[in-house]
């Protein structure tokens, strides 16, 4: 019983982290219809920035989190303005190839400067240790920290989308770019802002995830499929879809690896294929299929 609770909480932490990592991808896909396989590279950037700052310059971990966000967002903004925007109208294959190209460059670059080894950081004391719940079940303090941060972020994102002017513009642009343009919304700016924030969130996720997911140059490819699952299963029309998809994926993955170790990742792929085959437009798609 306590085991179940522990696994569940671990899964939730993992899922929440996936959500922060992948929600940017879901927005770029919904908004620009862009298949960005390089999304994980932004997460990796955030992770490595944190590693360098914490281990090299002794910057406090908590301070690194916003910095990771900003650095990844800045890189995202730069690449969006210079390269990504050229491929908005292109077919998915070109976008895939282009972003694989970026992934390769990022991986090789990181390998060159940081080496191929797994990176580690020392968490501050107050984030270490176990938090004991009822009946002897426990959860790592750090995982609890992740859950809290990500939950807050999810709520903030939802509020931004539903309450602010930017949010309504964004939704208008997602629904129909032409109409949004007709309403005088500068779609290009909305795209750039969104891309930057999405990349930033990935960077933040990368920083938060060093301890949980591991960090090495293969990060973008290792987690590519997870991000894609979140987006494809969750759909792109809301925050709630990817959020639920992330949780299901997180809990499923942790539980799978815990209870049937031989088939852990096997289960994820199977789950995804089954879902995609039954619901090709996502588990939570609300739009018609035509």
């Amino acid at each position: 019983m306590c085991r179940v609770l522990t696994v569940l909480l671990d899964g939730i932490a993992y899922g929440m982290l996936l959500f922060i990592l992948a929600c940017g991808l879901s927005v770029t896909l919904g908004l620009m219809n862009f298949v960005n396989l390089a999304h994980g590279a932004f997460a990796m950037a955030g992770g490595y920035v944190t590693v360098v700052l914490v281990n090299g310059y002794g910057v406090p971990f908590l301070l690194c989190l916003p910095i990771a966000f900003l650095v990844a967002a800045a890189i995202g903004l730069l690449l969006e303005r210079t390269l990504y925007r050229r491929l908005y109208g292109a077919n998915h294959l070109d976008q895939v190839l282009f972003s694989i190209g970026l992934v390769f460059m990022a991986m090789a670059g990181v390998d060159y400067f940081m080496g191929a080894r797994q990176q580690l950081i020392t968490l501050p004391d107050f984030l270490r240790g176990q938090f004991h719940l009822a009946e002897g079940a426990s959860i790592g303090v750090y995982r609890l920290f992740i859950i809290v941060i990500c939950a807050v972020l999810a709520v903030v994102l939802q509020l931004i989308l539903s309450r602010t002017r930017f949010g309504s513009r964004l939704r208008a642009a997602v629904d129909d770019g032409e109409v949004a343009r007709g309403l005088g919304i500068n779609v290009g700016t909305v795209f750039a802002m969104t891309f930057a924030v999405g990349s930033g969130l990935a960077g933040l996720g990368g920083a938060l995830g060093i301890e949980v997911l591991g960090l090495d140059p293969s990060f973008p490819i290792r987690f590519m499929i997870y991000f894609l699952i979140v987006v494809v299963v969750g759909g792109t029309s809301s925050i709630a879809g990817p959020f639920l998809a992330s949780l299901i994926l997180g809990i499923g993955d942790v539980a799978g690896k815990y209870y049937i170790p031989g088939f852990g990742s096997f289960m994820i792929y199977t789950m995804m294929v089954v879902i995609l085959v039954l619901r090709p437009h996502g588990l939570f798609a609300t739009r018609g299929t035509s």
Binding site: L29, V35, N91, H92, L93, V96, I225, L228, I229, V232, S265, F266, Y269, T270, M272, V273, L276, V277, P280, H281
Partner: peptide, 18 residues
Amino acid sequence: LRGSDLTRLMVTLAISMM
């Protein structure tokens, strides 16, 4: 062949990973 481009990418990727 059921889904869109994106679904196809995913399903083919998943099959090879499996």
